[in-house]
Computed example of a mutant assay.
Amino acid sequence: MLSTQEDISAPASFVFARLTDYDNLERLALRRGAKVTRSGQIGVGTTWSAEFRLRGKDRKLKGTLVEYVTDEKLGYEARIKGMEFSFSVELVALSRSRTRMVVSANAKAKTLTARVLLQSFKLARQRAQKRFANRVSDWAETIEDAYSGS
């Protein structure tokens, strides 16, 4: 399990709006070479299918929005060949203009091959945690920059 938190100088409503700007997020994925398809209106049960290349192999991901509490929490589940992932983002309003974003991710292996992959990931957990924290920090900084620029 990976988990990190970041404090953002922006109101929770603004942070939540940025996190749920799915049109923009889908465009970002398309720019990085992924093919993304959304089905359903935004809310619990919305699904995404994505195809992308990772480490020299084509991958297919199916993701679902499983929790959606406005200005407070988002929860997702995803599947990629033999693995299931859960991902959550919680927002805590520290003040009117400051929000703590707590992000966590978890993976479960469903096949032997996936178990081996997950085990090697666990051996490099510290490095993965650092990369995860850096990505979330970059994401938080982008949101903060958008708020200060608006």
Rank of each mutant, 00 (worst) to 15 (best):
M1I: 09
S3M: 06
S9H: 07
A12D: 08
A12N: 08
F14P: 13
V15K: 02
A17Q: 09
L19T: 03
T20G: 06
T20F: 09
L25F: 01
R27V: 14
L28P: 15
L28C: 13
A29I: 01
A29F: 03
A29R: 02
L30A: 10
R31V: 13
R31A: 10
R31P: 04
R32D: 14
R32C: 08
G33C: 03
K35V: 09
V36A: 01
S39T: 13
G40E: 05
Q41N: 05
I42P: 08
I42R: 07
V44M: 01
G45H: 00
T47Y: 00
T47F: 02
S49Y: 12
S49Q: 15
S49R: 12
A50H: 05
F52R: 11
F52Q: 10
R53F: 10
L54H: 15
L54Q: 14
L54N: 11
L54A: 14
R55A: 10
R55H: 12
G56S: 07
K57N: 07
D58L: 05
D58P: 08
D58Y: 08
K60S: 08
L61D: 07
L61V: 03
K62S: 00
G63E: 15
L65F: 09
L65I: 02
V66L: 04
E67A: 01
Y68C: 01
V69H: 00
L74N: 05
L74D: 12
G75E: 00
G75A: 06
Y76P: 05
E77M: 03
A78I: 00
G82R: 10
E84W: 07
F85H: 04
S86T: 10
F87E: 05
F87T: 07
V89L: 09
E90W: 06
E90L: 14
L91C: 09
L91N: 02
L91V: 13
V92I: 06
L94F: 08
S95H: 03
S95N: 08
S95L: 04
S97I: 14
T99V: 05
S104E: 02
S104Q: 03
S104K: 01
N106F: 00
N106R: 02
A107N: 05
K108F: 04
A109Q: 04
K110Q: 10
T111L: 09
L112I: 12
T113I: 03
L117M: 11
L117K: 04
L118F: 09
S120W: 12
K122P: 13
L123E: 03
L123V: 13
A124F: 15
A124T: 14
Q126H: 07
Q126I: 07
A128E: 13
A128K: 08
A128H: 13
A128M: 12
A128T: 13
K130S: 05
R131L: 10
R131G: 06
A133K: 15
N134H: 07
V136P: 15
W139Q: 15
E141C: 07
I143D: 07
A146N: 03
Y147E: 01
Y147S: 04
Y147I: 02
S148H: 07
S148V: 09
G149R: 15
S150V: 11
S150W: 12
S150Y: 12
